[in-house]
Simulated assay, not measured.
Amino acid sequence: MLMKMSMILLLFLSMLSSLSLITSNETGEFLDIICPNTNTFTSDTGWHSPSTDSFQSNLNKVLNTLTSPAAHDTGFYNITAGLNSTEKAYGLFLCQGYVSADVCKDCVTAASIMAAQRCPSRINVIVWYDYCMLRYSNESLSTLCESPIVNWRNTQNATEWNRFNQVLGESMNEVVTEATVTANKFATKQANISRFLSVYSLAQCTWDLSAVDCNRCLKLAVALLPSCCEGSVGGRVLMPSCNIRFEIYPFYLQNATSAPATAPKALPPPAPKGTN
């Protein structure tokens, strides 16, 4: 009886924590930002004609499109700007499949602001929030990328770990399989550990990955769980091309509308801005 009461209390506290996060911050919690200082670009401060092809001007076009309202209907968008191969800018965002278009837009906008503040003049940037990921680079982003890797662990420890680990492993295998074959590369699952306790799992890839590459990325992420999160009631692995998470509360908002299982719409590049 004492063990059952402890599990109920643990679940209640976890759900309160999740509810507080959801209602207090529409973008979700900021998780991490990575921008190596080995590659930078020079600030574009001089006069340029409309035909000038610089990385900064192309990056501005990319970010303007990624933060525009029309880009967030599906939860994923990627874009390339520039004609000169040496100055092209590539960008994408991926929002969690359970958030609305408005939440997606708010999160991507916050991520772009964070990137400008924390990584000025950096060429390769990746930002993670609870509800979205934003990337940009001078190289194509539409290929499988398995690093950098960010791990997060829930500080609460699980009881009956052997049973928990068994159910979690089965649940993760199922969401990986489902995410690999669905159009929006996203899947969730609730699995019962006991009468009073469930584990909620999520797996997601960027939409531009093939089924083979999505499966490879997610399986690598799952393989990393023991080293980062063994014994915990929750954890996540974030990679540029995919992410996974598990908790003992429904963190993925079961009543929310998932991203439509259709291909993302193509948006035209923004019109060139006037020059002085």
Rank of each mutant, 00 (worst) to 15 (best):
C132T: 04
C132R: 15
C132S: 06
M133S: 13
M133W: 11
L134F: 04
L134T: 06
R135W: 07
R135D: 13
R135M: 10
Y136R: 06
Y136L: 06
S137H: 00
S137A: 00
S137G: 03
N138Q: 09
E139L: 04
E139H: 13
E139R: 03
S140N: 06
L141E: 10
L141F: 01
S142G: 11
S142K: 01
S142V: 02
S142N: 07
S142P: 09
T143Y: 14
L144S: 10
L144Q: 09
L144H: 12
C145G: 09
C145P: 09
E146P: 08
E146Q: 05
E146D: 01
S147L: 05
S147W: 04
S147T: 07
S147V: 03
S147I: 01
P148E: 12
P148Y: 13
P148R: 07
P148A: 02
I149K: 11
I149T: 13
I149Y: 09
I149F: 05
V150T: 10
V150H: 08
N151L: 10
N151W: 09
W152V: 05
W152Q: 14
R153M: 11
R153C: 14
R153S: 15
T155N: 15
T155R: 13
T155Y: 06
T155D: 11
Q156I: 03
Q156L: 00
N157I: 05
N157F: 12
E160R: 01
W161T: 01
W161E: 06
N162A: 02
N162K: 05
R163Q: 07
R163N: 02
R163S: 01
F164P: 01
N165V: 00
V167M: 00
V167D: 00
V167C: 05
V167L: 02
V167W: 03
L168A: 05
L168G: 08
L168E: 09
L168D: 00
G169E: 12
G169Y: 03
G169N: 09
E170Y: 12
E170Q: 13
E170F: 08
E170R: 13
E170G: 11
E170N: 12
S171F: 11
S171R: 02
S171N: 05
M172F: 00
M172G: 08
M172P: 00
E174P: 04
V175F: 10
V175D: 14
V175W: 13
V175E: 06
V175Y: 14
V175G: 14
V176T: 10
V176C: 08
V176I: 14
T177G: 15
E178K: 09
A179I: 15
A179K: 12
T180G: 12
T180N: 14
